[in-house]
């Protein structure tokens, strides 16, 4: 359980990091290392050089603009969880972060690292998918390239990240001024473990209390987190029957996988129920804001 040999580089700029990554196909980015270091220890990953990006100025921090919240790639999960800006403006991400690992791993693990790793059962990629956040890379030519989640996550731990590129930030849309409720649910064998199924939801209400916009995403059940079209809920009062009907229809062709921990049919049932619970939680949250 000791890693094989590798070199270690700690570049000070994005350009320097991209240069090292572009020059060596077997170079890998090291951010918080909470997933990569176990993979090194088990020798599932054998990089030639690790490029530690955590001390690059400009990759840290959370910034709010008129309609977006930008999170630097190496912002630690614990810092994001403690952020007032994220709690107020990207509340679904704040809820999802509570389920990411446990306090010691959140202290080192980064928001960008989780997205770049692309684990289908990870909570941050699910929040990115539900909210349609943009994933921003800088390539070796210094040009920015932006990815939508559905174009980025293409398989288990498989993404369309450009070779020699570095994930620099995530751009989340700010919540609407209208009452915006969120819900996040998952089922796992124990706290902090990988989820068997997870659901994230966000609803925005009209002034009359009907649903203006509903978003839903399902994680952990297939090869990638998936955004689910739940627009049929718009205009309804989000009663339990409204939600049940829309979820069952929307998830009718959801692809789920079998593994040691859960069968595909279990995952399907769990996804439907978790989606209902997440949407109901989002509705109640929004109604509370509406007063």
């Amino acid at each position: 359980m000791k890693p094989a040999q590798f070199d270690y580089a700690r570049p000070k700029t994005v350009e320097e990091a991209c240069g090292i990554l572009a020059a060596d196909m077997d170079a890998r980015v090291l951010a918080g290392g909470q997933t990569l270091v176990p993979m090194l220890a088990m020798r599932l990953s054998r990089p030639s050089v690790l490029v530690d990006i955590t001390r690059i100025a400009g990759l840290q921090g959370i910034a709010c603009s008129d309609d977006t919240v930008e999170i630097g790639a190496v912002t630690r999960q614990a810092a994001a969880l403690a952020s007032e800006v994220i709690r107020a403006e990207v509340p679904l991400l704040a809820k999802a972060l509570r389920h990411v690992g446990h306090p010691p791993t959140r202290c080192r693990g980064t928001v960008g690292g989780s997205v770049a790793h692309g684990d289908p059962s990870a909570e941050i990629p699910l929040a990115v998918t539900v909210l349609g956040a943009e994933i921003v890379f800088v390539g070796e030519d210094g040009e920015e390239e932006r990815f939508a989640p559905e174009d980025f996550f293409i398989g288990p731990m498989l993404t369309t990240a450009p070779m020699g590129g570095l994930l620099t930030r995530l751009v989340f849309p700010r919540r609407a001024a209208a009452p915006t409720g969120t819900g996040f649910r998952e089922v796992a064998s124990r706290r902090s473990d990988y989820a068997f199924a997870s659901a994230g939801a966000q609803v925005v209400l009209n002034a009359d209390g009907t649903c203006a916009e509903a978003r839903l995403g399902i994680g952990s059940v297939g090869d990638t987190p998936v955004a689910v079209d739940i627009s049929g809920l718009s205009g309804t009062r989000l009663t339990a029957q409204d939600i049940r009907g829309a979820v069952v229809e929307a998830l009718s062709d959801l692809e789920t996988v079998d593994d040691l921990h859960a069968t595909a049919s279990y995952r399907k049932r769990a996804a439907v129920r978790l989606a209902e619970l997440a949407l109901a939680e989002a509705r109640d949250d929004a109604l509370e804001q509406a007063g």
């Binding site: 700690r10 290392g33 909470q34 270091v37 220890a41 955590t54 306090p103 010691p104 202290c107 080192r108």
Partner: peptide, 20 residues
């Protein structure tokens, strides 16, 4: 588990060189 800058972290998931 050790404390790094006052926070609990896993010392097996940090490389020594990262703790510089």
């Amino acid at each position: 588990t050790v404390l790094v800058d006052g926070e609990a972290v896993r010392s097996c998931l940090i490389l020594g060189v990262q703790a510089d």
